[in-house]
Write a protein that binds this DNA or RNA. Structure first.
Length: 500
RNA sequence: GACCCAGUAGCUCAGUCGGUAGAGCAACGGCCUUUUAAGCCGGCGGUCGCAGGUUCGAUUCCUGCCUGGGUCACCA
């Protein structure tokens, strides 16, 4: 009963034999460095027919091989791109050609020194004069055959690409661009915040009481403390403690962890940007958020994006609409005058999945999601949210008991940001969290906890504050035109692969 | 969590209206000193995702499960 893959095992065996052959000829197949001075792409771009035979030294992975007995062509791939090598026995030496080159495989990493020339078929190439191995490949790579940048056997299986991301980047180097852009986006976020006087901070990921959002957590255990800890679902409460402590502008690029469903816009660990500023309100933050997103888009030279099959302009002014204005328009009814029972009846009329326990805010939210969200294609700040679903936001300044100062930013029918005029009245805050706790008691697993530490901090005096949370992965999706969060996360969460 | 689709060689795929499978690439041997999806010749490589059921016989039909993708629900 053998579960060996004979074909694969045989290929690997041959590679080991070649590795041994290289070692036996006195060459270290895994040396320590190589004096690389040139990149493939630069060599091609800077080629000058008048200064033929320019000396270059390049290093990279062998991605194609055409052996013709005593001379061969291969393509070398480095970070910048690909370049063809011409390796002639009489020029690299009979020993190197027979003992080293003949034992090289697709996927090996080599270093080459030689001169630039143009082949008969007019491809700028490097004529090798010195060849060395830098690392041996022992496992076959995906099929890398391509012509004019188009793969013939595309390595496109998503499961394989995500599980073996390195193979994805070797076979589909263009996919690296998304992650270069991701880095640019995050760097631009930092740059905007830093230059506006925000301090970047780091707050605990392991927390005794999780809070700051409505979500189910991951639970873990600390042996020495002998207590259960949670992986944070948000960093909000800690950042507010810093505002209380006198840091007036803070931000954190935080990995959050939520024990919920996974789909094309949710990964169990994801990156959020939260920033808080003392003495401003949610409306100030609205303008700041718009500026932040537009600045990032400009940095990427993105003006119009295609997202969720919508074409969206990011340079025009973002719209600002109140939730009720949108609801009344979409429904043709006066949703703003409905009470809880009225909303309940209307939700039933719309055939929404609701249950009798839902409060005013939850019903309003359900109706909003159904009627309005699908219409929010152009960037739109939606403000005036129900208090019942916003336990950390300050009540509206006009005295309306059911509404808080909060906005969410929607682009392409997807939520990108969530912000409040932060609640800074500790008495009100305790009541709000206590009513959340009651929801937990009747089975709402996502309702928030009473965090006495947080309330105690607020009792020491918290300035009026504006706070914003932005889904970084989603921003990357938007700006790079990706429709799956897995395509903007290097190593997305996957179920453990069964033993084969 | 619900529904739909997919899983065949290392990779990309075909195929079998039920009689245990083919191709290209890769890999292996041979020829080839400007090729480029190099070419030519030769020989390999698979318990057809897993487990049951029906059947004389299952990779194919049925059921369950696993993994992934997609849609929906919840959330960011």
């Amino acid at each position: 009963m053998s579960t060996d893959n004979k074909s694969l095992k045989r290929i690997i065996d041959f590679r080991h034999e070649k590795l041994d052959a290289i070692k036996n000829s006195g060459i270290n197949p895994f040396p320590y460095s190589f004096d690389r001075t040139d990149y493939a792409d630069d060599v091609i771009k800077s080629y000058d027919p008048d200064s033929d035979k320019k000396q270059v030294s390049i290093a990279g992975r062998i991605v194609s091989m055409r052996k013709m007995g005593k001379a061969s062509f291969t393509h070398l791939q480095d970070e910048s791109g690909k370049i063809q090598l011409y390796i002639k026995r009489d020029d690299v030496g009979v020993d190197v050609y027979n003992n080293l080159f003949k034992n090289l495989d697709l996927g090996d990493i080599i270093g080459v020194t030689g001169y630039v020339f143009v082949t008969r078929t007019e491809e700028i190439s490097v004529h090798a004069e010195f060849l060395t191995i830098l690392s041996k490949n022992l496992r076959p790579l995906p099929n890398l055959k391509e012509k004019d940048g188009v793969a013939f056997n595309e390595y496109g299986d998503k499961e394989l690409r995500y599980r073996h991301r390195y193979l994805d980047f070797i076979a589909n180097p263009q996919n690296k661009i998304i992650f270069e852009q991701r880095a640019t986006i995050i760097s631009a976020m930092r740059s905007v915040l830093d230059s506006n006087g925000f301090l970047e901070v780091e707050t605990p990921i392991l927390q005794q009481i999780y809070g700051g959002a409505s979500a189910r957590p991951f639970k873990t255990f600390h042996n020495t403390l002998d207590e259960s800890l949670y992986l944070r679902i948000a960093d909000e409460l800690y950042l507010k403690k810093l505002i209380i402590g006198g840091f007036e502008k803070v931000y954190e690029l935080a990995k959050n962890f939520r024990n919920e469903g996974m789909d094309r816009s949710h990964n169990p660990e994801y990156t959020s940007l939260e920033f808080y500023q003392a003495y401003v309100d949610v409306y100030y933050m609205m303008d700041f958020t718009e500026m932040l997103i537009k600045t990032i888009a400009q940095k990427l030279n993105v003006d119009t994006v295609e997202f969720n099959s919508f074409k969206i302009s990011l340079s025009k002014p973002f719209e600002k609409k109140s939730m009720f204005e949108l609801l009344n328009n979409a429904s043709g009814k006066s949703v703003d005058t409905m009470d809880r029972l009225g909303l309940y009846e209307y939700a039933k009329e719309l055939k929404l999945e609701i249950d009798k326990k839902m409060n005013y805010g939850q019903l309003l939210d359900a109706i909003f999601e159904h009627l309005v969200e699908p219409t929010l294609i152009n960037p739109t700040f939606v403000y005036d949210y129900p208090k019942a679903i916003s336990p950390l936001a300050k009540g509206k300044r006009d005295g309306n008991q059911d509404i808080v100062e909060r906005f969410e930013l929607f682009i392409g029918c997807t939520e990108f940001a969530n912000a409040f005029s932060e609640l800074n009245d500790p008495i009100d805050q305790r009541q709000r969290l206590e009513s959340q706790a009651k929801l937990r008691e009747i089975g709402d697993e996502e309702a928030q906890n009473v965090d006495n530490d947080f309330i105690e901090a607020m009792e020491c005096g918290m300035p009026p504050t504006g706070g914003v949370g932005i889904g970084v992965d989603r921003i990357v999706m938007l700006l790079t035109g990706q429709n799956s969060i897995k395509d903007v996360i290097l190593f997305p969460a996957m179920r453990t692969e069964k033993e084969k």
